[in-house]
């Protein structure tokens, strides 16, 4: 179908189903071979398909958009340098994203932004985990564990409607930007870019459990930011 390709690159990326109007080869082996053979149409289609997601992920590692754009450029150059040796031990997509995270970490460290997981980091993560939902619930007495302010039905019925408000979109983007780096990386890939849980674990080299914990914290915070924009008439 041509329409989804025009209207939503994300949708095509998510489904990853090449078709007649799509210049991308049907299977990954042909895609890799076409790139190794120097097929510019395929290279430019792959670039168009992944660059937006790569850029968003890079911004979760480095302090500015300009540096993130450089990282995306370095990533594609890395793809060209490495494609001859690509053996398909991971999916092509995972491989490309791994090149990006490696470059982004190097740049992030140089720009004094990215702090690799350290013991101190793990401890503060634990503290955050126990307090994440505390404020939403009654702490003691007969109502202990129950909602302080029971969640209401949200007014806006479709996500598109929530995003119609520019204010709301900016608030969501800022909420994501304000997350700890590792939570931001996970929610960016999983929810914003629609990458599968398995691929996220491979790209970020984290365990399934860690992926879920980080995703949970990130989603919980974004939900809280979204709440006042989509609450029913009582606000």
């Amino acid at each position: 179908m041509l329409l989804p390709f025009i209207f939503s690159r994300k949708l095509v990326l998510f489904l990853a189903v090449p078709n007649l109007s799509d210049p991308l080869p049907r299977d990954e082996a042909s895609l890799v071979r076409a790139l190794q053979d120097g097929d510019e149409t395929v290279f430019s289609a792959v670039m168009d398909q992944y660059s937006g997601s790569l850029l968003r992920l890079a911004m979760a590692y480095v302090p500015s958009r300009a540096v993130a754009e450089e990282v995306v450029q370095e990533t594609w150059i890395g793809v060209l340098e490495g494609i001859g040796r690509f053996e398909g031990r991971s999916s092509f997509k995972t491989w490309v994203f791994r090149i990006l995270t490696n470059r982004a970490k190097t740049r992030g460290t140089r720009e004094r932004r990215y702090e690799p997981f350290g013991l101190a980091g793990v401890d503060s993560e634990k503290d955050e985990g126990s307090s994440l939902e505390d404020s939403l619930f009654v702490a003691e007495g007969s109502g202990s564990g129950h909602w302080v302010d029971p969640p209401q039905g949200w007014e806006a019925d479709t996500p598109e409607r929530a995003l119609l408000s520019k204010e709301c979109r900016i608030a969501i983007e800022e909420a994501i930007n304000g997350l700890p780096d590792n939570q931001r990386q996970v929610i960016t890939l999983r929810d914003v870019e629609g990458v599968s849980a398995e691929e996220v674990c491979n790209i970020l080299t984290i365990s399934e459990t860690n992926q879920r914990v980080l995703l949970h914290r990130a989603r919980t915070k974004v939900r809280r930011v979204l709440d006042p924009y989509v609450r029913g008439g009582n606000s």
Partner: peptide, 28 residues
């Protein structure tokens, strides 16, 4: 609300890649 939050995130407009970045890469 959680499902709605996830669906909303999925609807964020994709990050635009500047054309000069794209052109430079095609040159490369």
């Amino acid at each position: 609300q959680m499902k709605y939050t996830v669906a909303t995130l999925r609807q964020l407009p994709s990050e635009p890649v500047p054309t000069q970045v794209r052109e430079a890469l095609l040159e490369r």
